[in-house]
Design a protein around this nucleic acid. Structure first.
Length: 416
RNA sequence: GUGGCUGUAGCUCAGUUGGUCAGAGCGCUUGGUUGUGGACCAAGAGGUCGUGGGUUCAAUUCCCAUCAGCCACCCCA
């Protein structure tokens, strides 16, 4: 075991895993494209304020999980812990209020100083979808439908459930918060120590506590739905009707809440039982107040993020990449000829692999190991006839093919 | 951040109630003659038994610390 280890909570993504990651990201990109979402990318770090001012000072992400550092110019920067704040910043920086509604897809690494566990890393990846400028519930329906389609395209639809709740608008939420706190204070003796702390900072979180005592108390707590004002009530009804119309199945979970302060109305999560405690695979909601709070023009927004590593663990092995054609020179003198042929095949769109050393046996062995579909053997004999021997590595059959016909001949093994 | 479990070759794992106990399978390398892979056979390389201390005549095996992974809490994707 080497002394050289990766930083805690980070890991190298080697070809096997990378294949799964790419499949997750590529599927998200493709489904998002069908919904008219254009891919964008924002920097991996931002001024610390971008996150500190928007995520809320009660969230754990800001209070203890950010990778914050001072750069050589003395600015406080933070490695992004999530994507939405960066998108909102980019929206303001680039004056994109002129282009509403704005639909974007993005992906990339996120950084959170958490205690690592399976499915919970310090550097992890998300795919993310944001819809800005649409205040109607149909906007939420669109992003949720996109999420559901994405998960279905990954083949995990039967492993996940969409849970949905409403946080109401600011007025409803404040009213509910007051009622909830009043109720919980009446049962404060039965609350866990942790929940007593949350009572002041983030009482909604107590709703999804896993502590048995808390759960018993929460079971009798007032419901958000009872505190919704007419507008919020109406919003949620329309959202449900829209999801029905889009044929997106969901389950209402009145205890579903959010750790981040900027959410309102729709809050949703696709969860699975298959990943233990890290069961949330895709989650999001509406954040109408965020952009105004950052100093931009008041702009509604909704969207979600999904964990690439978690999804990569959940999916079946994705279809393998195209099998290469191995180029096998026979004898020292054939090296240059081999690279010329390889270049020609690559230029024609083939995956061509050259091993660069060893005798014929070794090179064929390598061809076999990398899963090559066929081998192109180039020796003195073939050279004399301006030809190559093509060996089918699955059947073992081989034929001599004039170099001029090589591309055409190999097309049966791999469509260029 | 809290509590618990684990840590032996690249991988998956045996093993030692402290003294030929450093092992297996897979993988890797080489060979089984000339320009032919996959199967098979043979040989070989590779580990200071996570790291650092301590106890002991002696520790990979016991104790402590530390690091890492995993599980639950917490948090969330």
């Amino acid at each position: 075991m080497s002394a050289l280890k990766p930083v805690r909570g980070t890991h190298d993504i080697l070809p096997g895993d990378m294949h799964r990651h790419r499949h997750v990201e590529q599927t998200a990109r493709e489904v998002a494209r069908r919904y008219g979402y254009a891919e964008v990318s924002t920097p991996i770090f931002e001024f610390t304020d971008v996150f500190a001012r928007t995520l809320g000072d009660t969230s754990d992400i800001v209070t203890k999980e950010m990778y914050t550092f001072e750069d050589k110019g003395g600015d406080s920067l933070t490695l992004r812990p999530e994507y939405t704040a960066g998108i909102a910043r980019a929206f303001i920086s680039n004056g994109l209020a002129q282009e509403l509604p704005l639909k974007v897809f993005c992906r990339g690494p996120m950084f959170r100083y958490e205690r690592p566990q399976k499915g919970r890393l310090r550097q992890f990846h998300q795919v993310d979808v944001e819809l800005l400028g649409v205040a109607e519930p149909l906007g939420d329906v669109e992003v949720m439908a996109l999420g559901a389609d994405f998960l279905a395209a990954l083949g995990v639809a039967d492993k996940v459930t969409l849970e949905l709740n409403t946080l109401g608008d600011a007025e409803s939420r404040a009213a509910y918060r007051a009622k909830l706190v009043e109720y919980l204070e009446g049962h404060i003796d039965g609350l866990s120590e942790e929940s007593r702390l949350r009572l002041r900072r983030n009482p909604l979180r107590i709703l999804d506590s896993k502590d048995e005592g808390d759960r018993a108390i929460v079971a009798g707590a007032p419901l958000m739905s009872e505190s919704l004002n007419a507008a919020s009530r109406n919003y949620f009804d329309e959202l449900g009707a829209g999801l029905d119309a889009a044929a997106v199945a969901y389950r209402i979970n009145p205890r579903l809440v959010r750790g981040l302060d900027y959410y309102c109305h729709a809050a949703f999560e696709f969860t699975t039982e298959a990943l233990g405690a890290q069961g949330t695979v895709l989650a999001g909601g509406r954040y109408d107040g965020l952009i105004a709070q950052m100093g931009g023009p008041p702009t509604p927004g909704t969207g979600w993020a999904a964990g690439v590593e978690r999804l990569a663990m959940l999916i079946e092995e994705p279809p393998p990449p195209p099998r290469p054609i191995a180029i096998v020179p026979i004898g020292e003198a054939m090296g240059e000829r081999a690279i010329a042929v390889a270049q020609r095949l690559r230029g024609a769109g083939f995956v061509a692999d050259l091993g660069y050393s060893g005798n014929v046996g070794k090179r064929l062995k390598r061809a076999n190991k990398i899963g090559a579909r066929a081998a192109v053997l180039l020796g003195e004999d073939e050279l004399a006839r301006d030809a190559a021997t093509v060996r089918d590595l699955d059947t073992g059959d081989q034929v001599e093919v004039p170099l001029s016909d090589l591309v055409e001949h190999l097309a049966r093994y791999q469509k260029p």
